Amino acid sequence: MMTEFLAAALAFPTVLFSLLVLVVLAYWLTVVLVGIDFDAPVLPISISLFVVITWFLALVGTVLTPENKLRWVVLAGALLLGALATKLVLIPVKRWTRPEKPASRNDFVGRTAIVRTSRVTENYGQAEVTADDGGTAVVQVRAATSTDLKAGETALIFDYDAEGEFFWVVDISTGG
């Protein structure tokens, strides 16, 4: 059984990927032993998955096609299916490894907010705004003197004043 496996692993086209699997194993062993700390870069993971998946497909194809004339078809099929399978496997991996952008107050610019104080003036006011993750925050807001925003009305956040640490808002409520 083991000799059949070795024969298939060392036969063309599987042997091409068998050598690459050894390189991938050496790479990841080095990462583990040396203790390289990285945030799961997608490129080494992508290449490693592609090599392992394509090696497996080539191995299966080599076992199922004993005739040497079909081995080029096995190579082409393994490369094509390996690329497709790797792309499918990487969809959740990319979501997992995507670095999260740190939250910023500027993320609220362009969002609507509900006024929570009795009024909003150029010197006073608070409103509740919803973040991307569904959480809410009560933030300091200011409006021009001509705006008459009251509690419960909807305002649009159009700018952030970093020095004053407040958001500029404009009334977009439909009345009420």
Rank of each mutant, 00 (worst) to 15 (best):
P44Y: 08
V73Y: 06
K69V: 13
L33C: 13
L81P: 09
F56N: 05
L43R: 07
V52W: 06
R95I: 01
A78H: 11
V32C: 03
L81T: 09
L88N: 04
T97A: 15
P99Y: 03
G35Q: 06
T54H: 02
F50T: 06
T30D: 09
P66S: 07
S104I: 09
R71T: 10
L43V: 14
L29V: 12
P102F: 00
R105K: 01
L80D: 06
T97M: 06
V60F: 11
F56Y: 03
V34N: 03
T62Y: 02
T86F: 02
L81I: 14
S104L: 10
E67Y: 09
V34Y: 01
V52Y: 07
K69G: 06
T65R: 00
T30E: 02
V74K: 02
V32L: 13
K69T: 13
A85K: 03
L59F: 13
N68H: 11
S46G: 08
R105L: 12
I36H: 08
F50G: 08
G35T: 10
A103Q: 11
A58P: 01
L84V: 15
D39I: 14
A85V: 15
P92K: 08
N68V: 02
E100C: 03
L49A: 12
V89T: 12
L79I: 14
T54E: 05
G61Y: 10
V89H: 10
V93I: 13
F50E: 08
I91N: 06
L75V: 04
L75W: 11
I47H: 03
T97L: 09
V51T: 00
S46I: 08
L80P: 11
G61T: 01
E67P: 00
P99S: 04
F50A: 13
T30L: 11
V93D: 01
V51S: 00
T97S: 15
A103F: 09
K101Y: 15
G35N: 07
P41E: 12
P99H: 09
R95H: 15
K69A: 07
L29R: 00
N68G: 01
P99M: 01
A76K: 06
A85M: 12
F50I: 08
R98Y: 12
A76P: 11
T86L: 10
K94D: 01
V63M: 13
V51E: 03
L59S: 01
L75R: 02
D37I: 06
V89C: 08
F50Q: 02
N68A: 10
V60T: 00
I36A: 14
A76Q: 01
T65K: 04
G35F: 10
V73D: 02
V34T: 12
P66L: 06
P92G: 09
V63L: 09
G77C: 15
T65L: 03
E100W: 01
A78R: 02
T86V: 06
D37E: 12
L49I: 07
L79P: 03
W28L: 03
I36Y: 10
V34D: 07
R71H: 13
G77D: 14
T65I: 10
V52I: 15
K94A: 00
K94L: 03
W96S: 05
E100Y: 04
N68I: 13
I47C: 07
P66K: 06
V31S: 04
T30S: 07
F50D: 04
L79C: 14
V52L: 13
L84R: 13
L33V: 10
V93Q: 05
